[in-house]
Design a protein around this nucleic acid. Sequence first.
DNA 1: CCCATGACTGAAG
DNA 2: TCTTCAGCCATGG
Length: 107
Amino acid sequence: MPKEDNFFDKVYKIARKIPYGRVTSYGAIAKHLGAARSARMVGWAMNASHNDDTVPAHRVVNKQGLLTGKHHFDGINLMQQLLESEGVIVENSKIIDFKAVFWSPNE
DNA sequence: CCCATGACTGAAG
DNA sequence: TCTTCAGCCATGG
């Protein structure tokens, strides 16, 4: 039984709520979890999310809109391509008009 | 138990 | 504006 009350599952739960064509930051997720200072754990959890394909990790970037985790994807360009496929403008591993596509876990 | 690592963030110089 | 430092805390050896 899925107690899955672990930290990762919480992160996954939020990540799965990210709407198509939107992105959010590690800090935003961490804050929503009640651990605003645990942004690292969110990113760390994302690393483990590779085991869970239901988590759109490519929609999670750092607060600058920079695709800091792209190196963890299968290919260096995969993350950017995925975002661009969703209508997110990405250039040089950075999201253009980040605030426009930013999504808050609150919504 | 202690130490190292990490997809972050914010403050300080 | 850019660089550096420190805090954060879960997981693994």
